[in-house]
Nucleic acid binder design. Structure first.
Lengths: 342, 342
DNA sequence: TCCGTCTATGTAAACCTTTACATGATTCAT
DNA sequence: ATGAATCATGTAAAGGTTTACATAGACGGA
């Protein structure tokens, strides 16, 4: 009773009194079949509950209508919201979504290639920022399928990229601080190694330039995007006693670190200092003070990325190398007007 | 150049000078093949970069080595951490993981059945708390594959369930409050419609019973698990002026609502009131005061659920109808010793 | 020496589609 | 009336495996 022998196209053909080719056509290209025949087939399908066997179809057609999504950490909330967009769009177009958690482990990355090399997936979405280890090796190794990178671009490649416009978002964020009267604005999270950090810093600089505010290098501090690095950077400023009136942090996690440092030093926020984050991760609205930040359009990023990939799969040449979506300014309470004329 | 015609088992057979049957055996049942032959096949595989076509294999073997995961909201952080466990365990055993976001939409649920009925997935993990709409209909409709329910059991069914032990967790949480000297402990989140809420309330009652504390029905308030319902419930207590010294909330979201209500009323926490949550969602450590709560073993839940499903797939009879995992008490700062002798 | 057993391998069917090509009927233009 | 073109359908191959069954050789015991 486990497997009650599902109806095949042959059963349908027998009942409808036609050949299996006609059944296939009636289902996939209804226009190519006479009205009366189509009716009989439809009826037979209904009677048997026939549903076409995806395996046989994939084998014959050499494609699976599946998309493989590779991410270093599937548990990352930032990822999962983008996933919703990816999945929604894929499902709309009849594609299924396969996920692989690489944990930045090369052997796991290689392992997932089997989905590609055995035709189990037609396309690939990468959150890892690099091609899976083992790709494009010698002959016989997995060929490159259509690929789209999300969040982290793949350097030195022509893989199309979809993500938030970090430069523009950082500029808007910094301009918001400027519009509140801030002139001494720190940037926490300088890093030459992460593309995201670099772009956001550029946006920060562009905003200050645009407002004719000269940049004080002592207000630009290193960070790696973690809460701890944010805390350490803020602490460092107090030790050196070079203080800003506002902190623009490379991301919300860093901003949280800054808030912790300032709270620890008994400052009242946002009276004494303003803080601006980037990302709008889920806890941003729960910190005290609630974090003013730039919201990543995660759903849209997912949808856009999947659409780019599906276009590629349909053979449409990739239109543009990257698709950038705007971040949205979310005003909460961690930013106030500059007080002491700084 | 798109498809460079991957090597097939036939190519390997030709190079190794054996039949395709032998190649298949050399790969899948190495013991059944002579050492020398096995060596030649292995060599030929290496030379061609052969990798078995999963579609053909699935077609022949009538199983896909894929698991379909259906969840109402894939973006839910609670889900995504469980997903990590599910995926890890599946991947270890050579299974792929397919995900479907139902958004509680019956038509989407039905839509995903195609994966089952076309043999694209061998088993099903359900987060939805009910069988997909359209299941078990008349003949021809999708047959039930092996299924495991996670987080929300499927009522009136024999679907095995894996989740946290809500009763036990709630008891431990309440006992913790009691151990801190609290006697007037409110329960926020009473509901007869959600299994989770009912179980947690039972745990709460059991702890009070165990400590010989009589239950004041006025301290048990309705809620649906949302932050707003928590805020409203706390507010309600002040209006009626029936006050506890501690709040045990059905989940962290509710606890957040209570904290917001108390902060708004200018109480100092946890000096004036203690608050205990359940779940340990990501923001729990960032609220002020940081929330003491019961941590769900999400990773383990995922792993356990997948293992139950895989056992089912291997034909092992389901051992027990439900697998309950213990929640862990996470002490932060929202609970303090009872102050005013209450 | 002969027979039965065991081992290693090969042959071919089955899994279920899609689709190139063939066929026969019908329509249309000349 | 005839040939070409169009249309609806059928036949059969191809897609790449796994595996039941067949075969043949080696081996051991009587």
């Amino acid at each position: 009773m486990q497997h009650q022998k599902l109806a095949t196209i042959e059963d349908v053909a027998a009942i409808a009194g036609v050949s299996i080719a006609t059944v296939s056509r009636a289902i996939n290209e209804p226009g190519k079949v006479a009205d009366e025949t189509r009716r009989r087939v439809t009826e037979a399908v209904a009677k048997t509950g026939y549903t076409t066997n995806a395996m046989a179809r994939s084998l014959r057609m050499r494609r699976s209508n599946m998309i493989l999504i590779l991410a270093p950490d599937v548990g990352d909330p930032n990822f999962s919201n983008i996933l919703v967009g990816l999945e929604t769009e894929a499902s709309k177009r009849g594609y299924g979504v396969l996920i692989g958690n690489t944990q930045n482990d090369p052997s796991r990355e290689t392992d997932y290639l089997r989905f590609i090399s055995s035709n189990q997936a037609d396309g690939l979405i990468l959150f890892t920022g690099h091609l899976p280890y083992g790709f494009g090796q010698q002959h016989g190794e997995a060929r490159l399928p259509p690929i789209v990178a999300v969040n982290e671009p793949v350097p030195n490649s022509d893989v199309p990229y979809v993500g938030v416009d970090n430069f523009e978002g950082a500029r808007v964020a910094t301009e918001h601080l400027i519009s509140q009267g801030h002139k001494r604005i720190a940037f926490i999270g300088h890093s030459t190694s992460k593309a995201v950090n670099v772009l956001r810093e550029k946006g920060y600089r562009a905003a200050l330039d645009g407002a004719g505010i000269s940049i004080d290098p002592r207000l630009i501090l290193d960070g790696d995007g973690t809460t701890e690095s944010g805390r350490a950077a803020a602490e460092h400023m107090f030790v050196r006693d070079v203080l800003p009136s506002a902190f623009f942090c490379v991301n919300d996690a860093t901003a949280l670190g800054v808030i912790i440092a300032l709270n620890t030093r008994q400052y009242v926020l946002p009276r004494d200092f303003s803080i601006m984050g980037f990302d709008d991760i889920s806890f941003a609205s729960f910190v005290t003070p609630a974090l003013t930040t730039m919201k990543q359009p995660r759903l849209k990023i997912g949808e856009a990325a999947m659409n780019v990939l599906l276009a590629l799969l349909e053979g449409k040449p990739s239109t543009q190398p990257e698709t950038l979506l705007r971040a949205e300014l979310i005003v909460r309470s961690s930013v106030s007007r500059a007080g002491r004329g700084e």
